[in-house]
Design a protein around this nucleic acid. Structure first.
Lengths: 333, 333
DNA sequence: TTGTAGGCGTTATCAG
DNA sequence: CTGATAACGCCTACAA
């Protein structure tokens, strides 16, 4: 391995000077710089990042903990975050958490100086775990579950967007809108979007039939398809479905087709996420498009601030992203 | 920051002993171990990974360079690799390359000791770049472009699977099968699958009309949809479509629907990748299911071997994954 | 079974 | 403008 010392020797200067050249510091005579660069090239020198990290107390890597990368939603999120981080010359190491326990593990890894900071997309943790976030290391939580906690926080516009989606269905003359979601806990995407759905009903002065709120175990396509068939066969009266994710909605489109129900003629369907597939489904899927890029940008930005500030300010920020409504065939007519 | 020295002092032992406890080495008296563990807990000690890395010359992180994570295919691949790596207590840092230049950059990062090794999913590099892979650091190439190169290599069963898919269409009484692919270069997924498509024609003793081979710029849904409409409107005579990716096939399903062509009645469609959405499309999509997990496992395995072996054997392995054919509605009847 | 000494490659400090 | 020195926190010999 070629070290900075070797380069120094080859160039006839000290290691310090080589270091100065590498880090583009001023106060190096151009001719000296030349000699050093030449020696570096000749020896094919590479900085040893581990040594630099040790010295600087930084790694240049941020962690991103998500339940799974292989899902349209988290995949998109990961992509946006990696892009935002690359702009700041940071690398992103991805952790698949899948469970609450792993989420907590990811936190301690961050503490192990493996990462300069951690973006935690908390799906499993709840308010009760917020205590464990009281970490002296930079953490930004992405998600909906821990508000007012001891960390910076970037959230989806869940309630507002759900309300807008529901209003849109009203405007399309739906009157009995089913709401399809996962388990509703204190504060999670399902509960917040359900609140928006209810708000829309109140605002429109239409009662929301509790029978129309349907729960599934997982927010996947399979579950959506199955539940849609069950709803159709049970004789439930509904003319619209608001699904808390596009994956669920894709399943619902399939399930309704299986049951011989035409979308949008008999039932209108709207999703949430604006996954790239939505545009090309048959029928194409209306959906809520959250500002993923903006949220990713913001999350990285907050994290970088925490990393760079030395004093640990206790003021924490809660940021809520923007969204737009994408109207396609599944709610036309 | 709490160091190993602090713990040693607190426990009334030497740093060495603390290190022995941390690394689960024998020859530590149980009572001593207790004292040390207690002190570690009390001080909330965390190992400094940077220091350990510097000392050991390892980082415990492998790089994964893919064109983009936000695509069904690469997302699935990334998930499989992260899982395989986690089993070996390795972390994965994801690089979005998007271009050939970035792919080469990722290589040098690997050299910078940032990673112990690199899995490079080479989409843009070509045989000509293979030289640059002659790196003394562990690299495994995942993809199809660099065979017989100076690195280990895990490839898809492109030709075999394409042949099987084409045969399946023949068996479904298709006689004029369009082949939809991206730019065909020396060795890439499109060219290899095209070869399989042609082999199937020869084996069945059916001529392959060159007009049926259609090229698109990007293997995306949008491009698939547009090309399908063009094919339909141009009056091209075809009763089957083999798409080199499921994304493309999803677009084709949409484009054919736009043109009033019924699948599978008038035209049968088959894809490649078995993306999770395929099962729930309307109609559900027949496709080739490559053994992603097996390939990921193998890639990580090869990389770990390279990392662990000190002598740089020059023998490199080319591994080709397995596959299965998933028959769904889009080719029924 | 435990301790001591030295160095991994880099950079901050401060003196020249 | 350049260089000597001393850390950063950990681990491996070797010694006790």
């Amino acid at each position: 391995m070629v070290t900075i010392q070797d380069v120094a020797k080859a160039a006839g200067v000290s290691a310090m000077t080589v270091s100065n050249v590498i880090n583009d510091r001023p106060n190096v005579r151009p001719s000296t710089r030349e000699k050093v660069l030449e020696a570096m090239a000749r020896l094919d020198y590479r900085v040893n990042v581990a040594a630099r990290n040790l010295r600087k107390g930084r790694t240049g890597i941020i962690g991103l903990a998500v339940p799974e990368v292989d899902s349209p939603y988290y995949g998109r999120l990961a992509a946006a975050i990696i892009t935002a981080a690359q702009r700041r010359a940071l690398r992103v190491s991805i952790e698949q958490t899948a469970s609450r326990e792993n989420e907590l593990d990811a936190l301690s890894l961050s503490r192990n100086h493996q990462y300069d900071g951690l973006i935690l997309s908390a799906a499993g943790m709840s308010q009760a775990d917020a205590e464990r976030l009281k970490v002296e290391h930079p953490v930004v939580v992405l998600g909906d579950r821990i508000f007012g906690g001891p960390v910076d926080h970037v959230a989806m516009p869940n309630r507002e967007a759900a309300r807008a989606a529901t209003c849109h269905l009203f405007a399309q003359r739906c009157r009995r809108i089913a709401f399809l979601c996962g388990a509703v806990e204190e504060v999670n995407p399902s509960s917040l979007r359900l609140a928006g759905y209810r708000e829309a009903h109140e605002a429109a002065d239409l009662p929301a039939d509790p029978a129309l709120v349907q729960f599934v175990d997982r927010l996947g396509m399979r579950e959506g398809a199955q539940r849609a068939r069950e709803m159709a066969e049970s004789g439930l009266d509904f003319d619209g479905v608001f699904c808390v994710t596009d994956s669920l909605a894709m399943g619902v489109l399939r399930g309704l087709a299986d049951s011989g129900i035409r979308v949008p003629d008999q039932v209108k369907v709207i999703g949430f996420d604006n996954v790239s597939e939505s545009e090309f489904l048959i029928p194409s899927l209306s959906t809520v498009d959250p500002d993923h890029d903006g949220m990713a940008e913001r999350a990285v930005d907050l994290l970088v601030r925490r990393i760079e500030q030395t004093a640990h300010s206790t003021r924490h920020r809660d940021f809520v992203g923007g969204f737009s409504l994408v109207v396609r065939e599944s709610t036309r007519g």
